[in-house]
Amino acid sequence: MAYISLRAVHKTYPNGYCALKNINLDIEAGQFIAVLGPSGAGKSTLLRAMNALDPATQGEISIDGVTLNKKNYRKIRAHIGMVFQQFNLVDRLNVMTNVLVGRLAERSWLSSLFYLFPKTDYQITEAALREVDLLDKAWSRADKLSGGQQQRVGIARALAQQPKLILADEPIASLDPKASEEVLTLLRKICSEKGITVIINLHQVEYAKQYADRIIALNAGWLVFDGSPEQLTAAKQAEIYGTTYEETSHEPELVLAHT
């Protein structure tokens, strides 16, 4: 059985908007998977269904053989890292504490009340910060860091969870091209070296082709493409983004502009 499997997953929001329609997916462990699609296609919803931040309304999602249900959300999330577009660090806490947050699932509420963590947690956090090359910033306030650095703190927080899976929801959408490549290279390295499965939402087709092992594309809640980067031809791209073949083949930048 695949590491992650989605069976007939539907997601309808309370306002009646249907964001995911009959998604069936099998994802093998240790892969780097890019999710493409125009804005509003359901990319975020797909990721957020996998760690039940937005639980699927129909269908079944299982991760590592465990089927998600209301009772095991917290337990499952403990080992799924999540990286956000807006980083979602706590601005006034230092980098160290922000990364220690990744250990919270293992700690009792009483020790958390006093910001107490055992020594082992500090060691895990230190290793995570070394991994993202931010040890020198460990005691800086999170909001003093640049966007790229903040996103690396976000990744370190995910690593501190000692995850088997990292979900990255448009992690580079607020970053400049240089920081974007740093973050993608880092995530790729984590995937290849540690065998952590990475599922990443992207708007840039080029990056997806460059970094991913497998590309999935959604449009209006439907799964419209699933294959290797080589299989994602210009014609397929046009289909995903709903532009015509001529537009994409003559002006590749236009695809970016439309997303």
Partner: peptide, 21 residues
């Protein structure tokens, strides 16, 4: 959300997300 995503509980969200912010 970031706190929920790491599996943090009620008190942990108050201590690590609400109060510092």
């Amino acid at each position: 959300e970031a706190l929920s995503a790491v599996g943090a509980g009620f008190t942990q969200k108050i201590v690590f997300a609400a109060w510092p912010s």
